[in-house]
Every structure is written in structure tokens, then in C-alpha cells.
């Protein structure tokens, strides 16, 4: 049976974040936490594979206990079970420490044939996690994959498509393999009522740093993160442009068109 792992993340909806014009700080209060949008497409790809070839889908996320919400959301569209990696010791991690933590936790549960990730997250947006997870799973990787065309279960091989800047590659790849998915062929699935009910009862395993034998505490959280953020600042803004207001919409637009034609 195909063992499929789908990596998801709960992220703040950055599109709803505002900057405090007085302090230059981001206002985080009241910003909803959502399932990272591209992770929903990765999940769709995994569910499609399961529908076609059979298999079992496990979800994994790392975050605060509240991140269970996104796991339940994903369980409702066809995942079977979930792993919640949560511990303050995992906090403030960059991609290097996060990939080590997630793979260490996943390895306590099972071995996976296929691993699916979203192409990047809305908040960090590094797009690095897939490659770094693949490295630590010692798996092949196809980033920017757009289509899982065929799976040969006996040979343990897949035919997949990958989106490049100039066209589409067709690749044969061997399992275990990690994919970061483009959204092209995998629209987000809407949970059915039955799915929602099943999601409530589906098992979610919580894993803390204490639950992982041999975990190197120096490689997780802040101590395990080589990248640091010494400072943040508001974007340097140029001086505002000329705001046109000629009293009425027609006059203002007329002025604008004159300026465009200059």
C-alpha cells in the first residue's frame, strides 16, 4: 500500500496584515490563521493519487497546538490521519531546523513512499522546505511538479510533469520521492459532510521533542537555525505621486488620460 505524507502549515493570512503607520510594526492581532493556500493543492494531488492507486494519507504539521485546526480541515478532504509536531522547543525555527524536526518526527511513525508539499508558504515564502525535507528523508525530489501522470507500483516509479520557466518536463522518478506541487492540475477540494464527520474522529498524534528518541536538541528551534533576523524595517517608500482630483470623476479621468498621452 502506498504510504503518502502531506506536509501542511498553518499561516497567518498575510494579505490581511496591516502595518501600523505610526510605529512601522506589523499588526498581527486579529489576523486569521489559515491553511497555507498552496498546501491545499498539494493535498488535492495526494488525494487524487489515493483515489487512483489506493493508499493511506498521513498529514504532518509543525506549529502551536492550535494548528490542529488545519489538520482537521485537511482530514475532511480525504487524509486518513495526522501528526501534530508541537513543542515550544521547536519554535523560532528556520527551514533547516524545521526540516530536521519534521523528518525526525515523521520517522517515528512510518516510512513514506510519496511526500507532497505546497510550493511555498504565504508567510515565509522561501520555497526551501520541500528540497530540505527531501534531503533529510533521503528521497528523490521533483519541485514545481504539476502532474502525477502514472504510478508503477511494482517498479516503484512514477511519471510526472514539472513546470519550468520555458515549458514542461516529463520525468521518470523513483520512490521515495517528494513533490512540491504547482496548483495547475489540482484545484482545492471542498469537504463533504461525510468528510467533515470523519475528520472529527480521525486520529491526530501529537509529538513533542520528548517523543523523538535521539533527537539532537541543538538542531531544533532557535539554536538549530543558522539564519537569523537581526532587524526588520518598513519598506523605504519613495515620495508619494501626484493625486489627481479635478472635482468629479469624469474631469479627473479626463486629466489622467491627458497625462497618459503626454
Amino acid at each position: 500500500m502506498l504510504k503518502i505524507l502531506v506536509c501542511v502549515k498553518q499561516v497567518p493570512d498575510v494579505d490581511q496584515m496591516r502595518m501600523d503607520p505610526a510605529t512601522g510594526n506589523l499588526i498581527r492581532a486579529g489576523v486569521p490563521a489559515i491553511l497555507n493556500p498552496l498546501d491545499a493543492n498539494a493535498l488535492s494531488a495526494a488525494v487524487k493519487v489515493k483515489e487512483t492507486y489506493g493508499g493511506e494519507i498521513t498529514l504532518i504539521t509543525m506549529g502551536p497546538p492550535a494548528a490542529e485546526a488545519v489538520l482537521r480541515e485537511c482530514l475532511a478532504v480525504g487524509a486518513d490521519k495526522a501528526i501534530l509536531v508541537t513543542d515550544r522547543a521547536f519554535g523560532n525555527a528556520d527551514t533547516l531546523a524545521t526540516s530536521y524536526s519534521i523528518v525526525s518526527a515523521a520517522n517515528t511513525q512510518d516510512k513514506y513512499d510519496l511526500i507532497f508539499c505546497g510550493k511555498e508558504t504565504l508567510d515565509g515564502a522561501t520555497g526551501q522546505m520541500g528540497s530540505q525535507l527531501a534531503e533529510r528523508f533521503n528521497a528523490a525530489q521533483v519541485t514545481s511538479a504539476s502532474l502525477i501522470k502514472e504510478i508503477d507500483l511494482e517498479k516503484g516509479k512514477l511519471i510526472v510533469e514539472r513546470e519550468l520557466e520555458t515549458g514542461i518536463e516529463t520525468l521518470e522518478v523513483s520512490m521515495p520521492c517528494l513533490f512540491t506541487m504547482e496548483k495547475t492540475n489540482y484545484p482545492v477540494r471542498i469537504p463533504s459532510l461525510k468528510g467533515k464527520l470523519a475528520a472529527k474522529k480521525a486520529p491526530v498524534v501529537t509529538i513533542t521533542s520528548q517523543d523523538i528518541p535521539g533527537l539532537d536538541k541543538q538542531r531544533i528551534g532557535d539554536p538549530g537555525s543558522p539564519t537569523k533576523v537581526p532587524r526588520m524595517f518598513p519598506p523605504v517608500m519613495p515620495e508619494p505621486g501626484v493625486i489627481l482630483d479635478e472635482g468629479g470623476l469624469d474631469a479627473t479621468v479626463s486629466k489622467l488620460l491627458e497625462l497618459i498621452k503626454e
Binding site: 528556520d94 527551514t95 530540505q132
Partner: peptide, 20 residues
């Protein structure tokens, strides 16, 4: 697409930091 494919992976193999 290709640069972003392998750079984070060799950074992880070297256990060093990668920015994007």
C-alpha cells in the same frame, strides 16, 4: 526553478543557512 531546487538541498546537506 532549478536553482531553487538544489540550493536549499546542498545547504541542508552542509547544515548551513539558506536565504531566498
Amino acid at each position: 526553478t532549478n536553482g531553487r531546487d538544489f540550493a536549499p538541498r546542498f545547504a541542508a546537506r552542509l547544515e548551513t543557512g539558506c536565504t531566498s
